[in-house]
Design a protein around this nucleic acid. Structure first.
Lengths: 242, 242
DNA sequence: CAGTGGTCTAGACCACGGG
DNA sequence: CCGTGGTCTAGACCACTGG
């Protein structure tokens, strides 16, 4: 039924996820691992790996001796902060229509000393600074500033190439893969500049910002990104486990 | 070399983690999976499961065809928000000496309607409200308020039993296990009450709060906890993956 | 008690990396 | 090319749940 590549585990995971989304398991319970293994003609280990991934994503939960069950509650929280997801999805999950405005792309050759230290760059490496604004029903809700060392870029590009998320730009133009962000969550009081960009009300407003250092698979820092969220309009959620 | 229970995988994980912490692998590289399997007399799958967990924790990273390596950079970030960890550890990792002050435990029988809805409680279930303050070198840095339905408690307890984290109280006194928190991150401007509790400077300060609904393994909400962090003194970090 | 998920084994083949 | 991690299999035993 399945071919290799993508891996059997990944295919089984997608297959089961789709069936869950289609509400094909009416009882909220998923067939036993042995049953699935027989039905799909793969070993039970492969089924278990697929189920483990779905459990990590919060789609299902398992109970020894009882069975595997669909996690109805958590299907409601689709975008969670511990996963890298396009901000458009975050906005869409709040019931708004997302749109993006590319505010500008500039190149800086000097300054930004602390940033260059974080990215382990020489003091003369040019930096691309990309400003983007995300809107929910035409109301600004997220402002992001991304710092990309210019020497990473191996292919010619245009400004439009920065419309999609940066982790789609990196493989195409830099032969780099974004493996993870190490992020710091900082609350702050909106500066006049930010209040203007995000169209904030006149009163003093608390904002949430995410200061992130993006790393590749070799664990080297490759990009820096800072995001500012209007948390009165967006809910930033997270699952914490032991 | 190892016995069953805790699982071989868990023992191998702890064993390798300890050797990493002891800096026994000078090259920054860990022996191959096959070598470890032979040395420890377990199957390669068991080794792989243990390594996968260490990779999830950010302790190591693997590269197909090359080997398994210690993640020097991420060893620095020990406490991360996506993991449930005692706040004492968070404070200790910032170089301070932690201490806890139990501010009060009160029982409320009425009100808190939205909270009762979240916890799926009847409107007359008594609620225990536990206030705690965490200090770093005697400076208040975290204030937490925990809401615990009184009908969960099956054993007699004293106020001192609330000194340790609530997820240690739950198994002992409620026969409940905290499986995960579904948390929402909210920035806010300190209220006078909070500024007083956290000994904040007179200027307007942005705080970070975490509003969390704790669930058991059956996925039912069991407790609510709200935490307020002085993020000028503590750095709240997180790893985000795809 | 039967059925479930949790753990573990031994062996196999593949894809990738570096010398 | 060889050694590495990545994937997959078939089979086994255990611990737990629920009727």
């Amino acid at each position: 039924m399945f071919k290799r590549n993508p891996s059997l585990t990944e295919q089984v995971k997608s297959y089961l996820k789709q069936r869950i989304i289609n509400a094909e398991f009416e009882t909220g319970r998923i067939p036993s691992e042995a049953t699935l293994a027989t039905e799909l003609s793969v070993s039970r280990n492969t089924i278990r790996d697929a189920l483990s991934r779905l459990e990590m994503e919060g789609v299902i939960f398992r109970k020894q001796g009882a069975g595997t069950f669909i996690n109805e509650a958590n299907l409601l929280v689709k975008t969670r902060l511990e996963e890298i997801v396009p901000y458009e999805n975050l906005i869409r999950d709040h019931g708004y229509t997302p749109s993006i405005r590319l505010l500008g792309v500039v190149q800086e050759s000097a300054g930004y000393h602390s940033l260059r230290t974080e990215l382990e760059l020489n003091s003369d490496t040019p930096l691309l600074i990309i400003d983007k604004l995300f809107l929910a029903d035409d109301q600004p809700v997220i402002f992001t500033r991304t710092y990309l060392p210019a020497n990473l870029i191996k292919q010619p590009y245009t400004g439009d190439d920065f419309g999609p998320p940066i982790y789609e730009f990196l493989p195409k133009f830099c032969q780099q893969e974004l493996a993870y962000y190490l992020s710091e969550i900082v609350p702050l009081i909106a500066t006049p500049e930010l209040a203007d960009k995000l169209n904030l009300p006149a009163e003093i407003t608390a904002l949430l910002s995410l200061e992130e250092l993006g790393h590749n698979q070799e664990n080297q820092p490759i990009i820096k990104a800072v995001s500012y969220f209007r948390s009165d309009l967006l809910r930033l959620r997270l699952i914490r486990r032991q």
